[in-house]
Design a protein around this nucleic acid. Structure first.
Length: 129
DNA sequence: GAATTGATTGTTGGG
DNA sequence: CCCAACAATCAATTC
């Protein structure tokens, strides 16, 4: 186990709109991390584990990027991927909790979806390969 | 048990 | 085929 504290913060973190408490040092993990953090952005995303199992739940930003990406491109037709990301991120942060609500909702749904697949574990039919 | 690090998710376009 | 910034978020590892 890990962050048992993350058990279920009454959707505080998942739904800031309902409760913009922002976890606020839920476990001081984020705070401390924020303090440390700021290391050099080492693009070390060379995949490690996670075989072909159930894909993890997407984050609100994932859905946001999917939706806004196109829009941002239209407003910025001559921007590269990196720029889009920066713009999207900027907008994302600029978005209000209410605006994030729908995205969070999607992420939540995905979370459940992921949990469901994970829960599937081994049922009757499954085991594709 | 709490904190931290790490890996994963999605986008597009290119090397 | 993998990575690039962006943000989130879980998940296992570690202490």
């Amino acid at each position: 186990m890990a962050r048992s504290a993350t058990a279920k913060p009454a959707k505080a973190a998942a739904i800031p709109a309902t409760k913009p408490t922002k976890v606020a040092k839920a476990t001081s993990s984020r705070a401390a991390k924020a303090s440390v953090a700021e290391k050099e952005p080492k693009a070390k995303r060379g995949k490690k584990k996670a075989k072909t199992g159930p894909k993890r739940a997407l984050s609100a930003y994932m859905f946001f990027s999917k939706a806004m990406r196109k829009t941002v491109q239209e407003e910025n037709p001559e921007v590269s991927f990196g720029q889009i990301g920066k713009i999207l991120g900027d907008k994302w942060k600029n978005l209000s909790d209410a605006a994030k609500a729908p995205y969070n909702a999607e992420s939540e749904k995905d979370k459940i979806r992921y949990a469901n697949e994970k829960a599937s574990h081994v049922d009757v039919s499954e085991q594709s390969e």
